[in-house]
Nucleic acid binder design. Structure first.
Length: 423
RNA sequence: GGAGAGGUGGCUGAGUGGUCGAAAGCAGCGCUUUGCUAAAGCGCCGUACCUCAAAAGGGUACCGGGGGUUCGAAUCCCCCCCUCUCCGCCA
């Protein structure tokens, strides 16, 4: 959520920044300003009336104590009371309208972000390793998975419908090994605190991180829309300290969490349906940071590096791209995507999206810290996958496949997997 | 699921219709006393919003959330959320 004062004082700047995202958010600014103007006018009038009532009511108290008659004043206050209740309603309405409008507005992209329209305009920041070459004909993960019995999408669809996967045998073990490998890496080497959060999320928390109210169609809702299945651990973990004022000394806070993630993937029907690249439920290890505005940009670089480390240790070639203004997520001010090379797809797959949300989420969830001057300010929140499992799984089996159809397990993963190969 | 208790400022905790944004204590900040530490004394010490060109100042709201009763609500009534205890069920 953007600061209404920023919009009020620098409407042109806000409009211009929002326009770089594409979409029509920048066209809403006039409506918001008008709403804000009305709201403040109502509020000022309401406050004056409240003041009158407060003063006169006290007067009644005083007169009663002295045994003086109060009927006339009471009549007067009754009249004020009726005015107040009508004005109160209007003010609350204006308040709600303004909040609704603000909640629909995406975050401002960072001033130095590359300007662009869509994914085609995302500049590459760096690459690690290189595309492996093979002297045999490559299989993709679907073929490998079927041959080695690693997962079973057909049977998963019998119980859950299309877009679900059931890992089996060595595949299930590999999935579990990857989760544990990532958790251990981030807790032991990168100093994140492991949390295992609930997966059912209340509306407020979903609003806090920005999934609601705008993207309800992408979420799985339960209990008549009271709670939702977590689409990412970002939601429960970032909300951990909502409505709190953190001490400067405890920032930045670093969390890592494994959760399954549930996404309806509405609007992407038919895309990437082969294999396990886009599914409604997948495992992910997520990194979350709560930081100060002074350090958050630096923390984003570190968080991205922490996520990259997963791929490096598994010997997987990847590239990091910076999202242009038109391709960034709703709440993000700056995002790096990490894309791992999947030889069987002949394509890079997004396995992590590392973002600084600045105070966008913190404002929604009222998450603050006390700065060195003792002032309460909004935190900056960050998150990134470290990493998403199914695509990591895909890249791993496709990269490390052998001529004989077996899959070699990278050394760093062997202690977790318990073997050096799958055959 | 049933029965009960409770949610007040950073913390503890008073306050059952009026002058209460809220006693007191603790913590914190400043000053005084002091050789240092300790202690004592004094003062300050919530948040949001509105108003103001800005600062100063002024104002309104907030005692879990929402609604109601009343001239007036932390206090009375209703609904919801959360926490705790006991019972039931259960991995």
């Amino acid at each position: 959520m953007l600061d209404i004062r920023l919009i009020r004082e620098n409407p042109d700047y806000v409009r211009e920044r929002l326009a770089t995202r594409g979409g029509d958010a920048h066209l809403k600014i006039d409506e918001i300003l008008e709403c804000d103007r009305q709201r403040r006018e109502l509020e000022t009038r309401l406050q004056a009336l409240n003041g009158d009532r407060k003063r006169l009511s006290k007067e009644i108290g005083g007169k009663r104590a002295k045994g003086e008659p109060t009927g006339e004043i009471e009549e007067q206050v009754r009249g004020i009371g009726m005015e107040i209740s009508s004005l109160n309603e209007q003010t609350a309405q204006a308040d709600a309208t303004q909040r609704d409008l603000l909640l629909q507005l995406p975050n401002l992209p960072h001033d130095e972000n590359p300007i662009g329209k869509d994914a085609a305009d995302n500049p590459e920041v760096r690459q690690w390793g290189q595309k492996p070459s093979y002297d045999f004909s490559l299989a993709d993960h679907v073929t490998l998975g079927a041959k080695l019995g690693l997962f079973d999408p057909e049977r998963a669809s019998k119980i859950s419908g299309s877009g679900f996967v059931c890992f089996t045998g060595q595949g299930a073990r590999l999935e579990r090994a990857l989760i544990n490998f990532c958790l251990d890496l981030h807790t032991r080497q990168h100093d994140y605190l492991e949390v295992s959060p609930p997966f059912l999320i209340r509306r407020d928390a979903m609003v806090g991180t920005g999934q609601l109210p705008k993207f309800e169609d992408d979420m799985y809702g339960l209990e008549n829309g009271e709670v939702f299945l977590a689409p990412t651990a970002e939601v429960p973990v970032t909300n951990l300290h909502r409505e709190e004022i953190l001490a400067l000394s405890e920032l930045p806070k670093r969390f890592v969490a494994y959760t399954p993630c549930f996404r309806r993937e509405a609007g992407s029907a038919g895309r990437e349906t082969r294999g396990i690249i886009r599914v409604h439920q997948f495992d992910k290890v997520e990194l979350v940071k709560l930081a100060t505005p002074e350090t958050s940009w630096d923390e984003l670089e570190k968080l991205t590096a922490n996520a990259e480390r997963v791929l490096q240790m598994l010997g997987l070639h990847y590239r990091v791209i910076e999202l242009c203004t038109g391709d960034m997520g709703f709440g993000s001010a700056k995002t790096y995507d990490i894309e791992v090379w999947a030889p069987g797809q002949n394509a890079y797959l997004e396995v992590s999206s590392c973002s600084n949300y600045t105070d966008f989420q913190a404002r929604r969830m009222n998450l603050k810290f006390k700065d060195a001057e003792g002032k309460n300010r909004f935190c900056h929140t960050l998150n990134g996958s470290g990493t998403a499992m199914p695509r990591l799984f895909v890249a791993l089996v496709e990269t490390w496949q052998q001529a004989d159809g077996s899959i070699q397990i990278p050394e760093a993963l062997q202690p977790y997997f318990g073997a050096a190969e799958i055959r």
